[in-house]
Design a protein around this nucleic acid. Sequence first.
DNA 1: TATGAATGAGCGTTCATTCAT
DNA 2: GATGAATGAACGCTCATTCAT
Lengths: 211, 211, 211, 211
Amino acid sequence: MPTRKTDRDAVIDAALELFRTRGYHHTSVAEIAAACGLLKGSVYHYFAGKQEIAAAALDRAVTDSREKIFGLANDPAVPPAARLRSLADAVERYFAGREGGCLMGSLALEVGDSIPEFRERVQRYFDDWKAALTAVLEGRYGAARAGELAEDAIARAQGAILLMEVTKDPAVLQRACRDTVALLDGVSKTGALAAAGTAAKDRPEPWKQAS
Amino acid sequence: MPTRKTDRDAVIDAALELFRTRGYHHTSVAEIAAACGLLKGSVYHYFAGKQEIAAAALDRAVTDSREKIFGLANDPAVPPAARLRSLADAVERYFAGREGGCLMGSLALEVGDSIPEFRERVQRYFDDWKAALTAVLEGRYGAARAGELAEDAIARAQGAILLMEVTKDPAVLQRACRDTVALLDGVSKTGALAAAGTAAKDRPEPWKQAS
Amino acid sequence: MPTRKTDRDAVIDAALELFRTRGYHHTSVAEIAAACGLLKGSVYHYFAGKQEIAAAALDRAVTDSREKIFGLANDPAVPPAARLRSLADAVERYFAGREGGCLMGSLALEVGDSIPEFRERVQRYFDDWKAALTAVLEGRYGAARAGELAEDAIARAQGAILLMEVTKDPAVLQRACRDTVALLDGVSKTGALAAAGTAAKDRPEPWKQAS
Amino acid sequence: MPTRKTDRDAVIDAALELFRTRGYHHTSVAEIAAACGLLKGSVYHYFAGKQEIAAAALDRAVTDSREKIFGLANDPAVPPAARLRSLADAVERYFAGREGGCLMGSLALEVGDSIPEFRERVQRYFDDWKAALTAVLEGRYGAARAGELAEDAIARAQGAILLMEVTKDPAVLQRACRDTVALLDGVSKTGALAAAGTAAKDRPEPWKQAS
DNA sequence: TATGAATGAGCGTTCATTCAT
DNA sequence: GATGAATGAACGCTCATTCAT
């Protein structure tokens, strides 16, 4: 068993955290290096440049979230509602107290389209998230509507994370997660993100529901 | 009868657009100056520094959105549902096709807490938005629940704008606006952001309300 | 009359001298700046980058040599032999005592083809030189042979300048210039760079020609 | 039966080629190492530093040219004219098609005097060349004049190599070599570099001359 | 012997800012 | 009020060199 965490990983870790909390352009290579006990120049032993560091950080984030969050939605042995719950819990737990928002959201906004290598990875991340949500929702809503609901849930969560930057209040994110879970609640249906866009008649009357 | 746009205003306009699309740290004073036909040095006649430019741009955004968007919610002569609709329409119209996201959202994520002058203004913006939505919703949902619904709607819209950076698909934002409008829909009930996660008892029974 | 020599010119002067004596890659922008009393960053007020400085230096060298050296060959009022003499004298005088060789030769060898902007200018310089020599020689040798003789004379002069770097002995350059002048010598005939390589028969019998 | 090329030799080969084509300051130790399949650090097992690599490369070039080129001039069994021809042929063959010029010429110009270890070796190279040419020429021209003619021929060849960098035309070098050979041509006379301004007939038979 | 990690100085460049004109 | 020159710190990056393994 090799020593866990190579130096390269340490650089990625530090970069991930700094990019997430301070943004890409406002984080210098020297800061990343200092954050893992290296000098500026040494970082270039592992990475060809700042962009490559960020690309590796995004890759790491994609992989991690796939393994630790979105993977939870794929176990066919677990009923969809439970899978959805653990997925939502994971999201809430991951972001609720965290300062600095979401790497993917931040870089999506900050760097936008200007660096294709980034965009591609951010897209993969959101695709993963959508796929996970769709997987648990399509049993009840059908693939198309489930996809929409997934997108809506992701938007709401991302927006909540963004608002937390300003309000420092995790309640918005918590409600977002709760409402998402409610999409597969008991008899339920309806719920938060569910309803709109669904013909009234195929919606169970919501007022009968408990939360 | 406003006096013709001064140079100062031109700087703010240019800065607003550049900060929005390229981020604060990735926009140089020289670029701002060039964008309004000035030289770098001249900008410093109007502003003490880059931060002051950004603060003014944020002020402008707060004022503008207050006048052109959130103000729509305040006319007591118009029924709440109509006011909500025009508010949601304004949001959708403003952001739907636009590249580069939302200044406030971008700066909130990019600069985060590091510059209090920014944070304060971003907060004011979101407070305005929340107040506008709450104003039209509280008739049906009560102040407390209306406030939550307002936050949820804002989160979802902001998240949709963020996702649009990646997906280039305005549908998520459109659904978000539609669902928000649905909060005061006729017989309505439920409604996108409304239902899930709210204890039945502390929610004004929505189905009894008229718009 | 404006103050001779703007700062931009001072940068070019300093760069010309440094590039000539120390080479392009071994000369730093900071050194150029220091040589004219500026800081590194200030140089970028005048030039977009190091390459542009060098391009301007090469332009200057092309212009200067055109005006001060090769121009001497173009006065139709002066007999060719005298024009050739003053041209050769100018070359000898310019390079004889000088340390550091010839900017054009140095950059041609050091940067070679890798920077087209440089190559183009170096080529123009040698073309000018060749044109000047050809102009005075073609009366006696015909255009084609005059062009060859011009190239040969240039090669020999450049090589002599190069050797001077090592030997510190101006004699080789002096002989090169003398032999070039001899190409149009009185009764003259052939000589130095002229003769060899041309079959006697296809050579206009030089001793019969008038200048 | 030389021992198979050692790694040290491989480094020298790679360095020679890189210094010649890209210049000393523009060639990094890492590039040299990569060019012979080593890692940067490993090079320092064979050489104390970059300067030592270059010194070894220059030594190699001196030795090689002595053996393969200038040596041709020393065989007393061969008549001078033939020796001169093979010498000139070797020079032409070696440089005619070659991109990147002559190591010695390049370093002479680029590094100039700043590194005495280099200068010394470059000087040795040119001395060898001069000695070789002088050896074959002194029979006809006498030692002193032969030395001058040798220098002139070297200058012209070096200049031609330099010009080839710009013109890509080997003709100038070819003429230079041809003219050099002509210095010992049959009835001789003329002779490119030989005569300088002196028509065959009005030249005292050179082989009678003293300096 | 060979490696790869690390260093630290320096490079070309950018940029917010100042200031004399 | 507007300019353009100048600054100086910082940035991303390169590189010759060292050294433990």
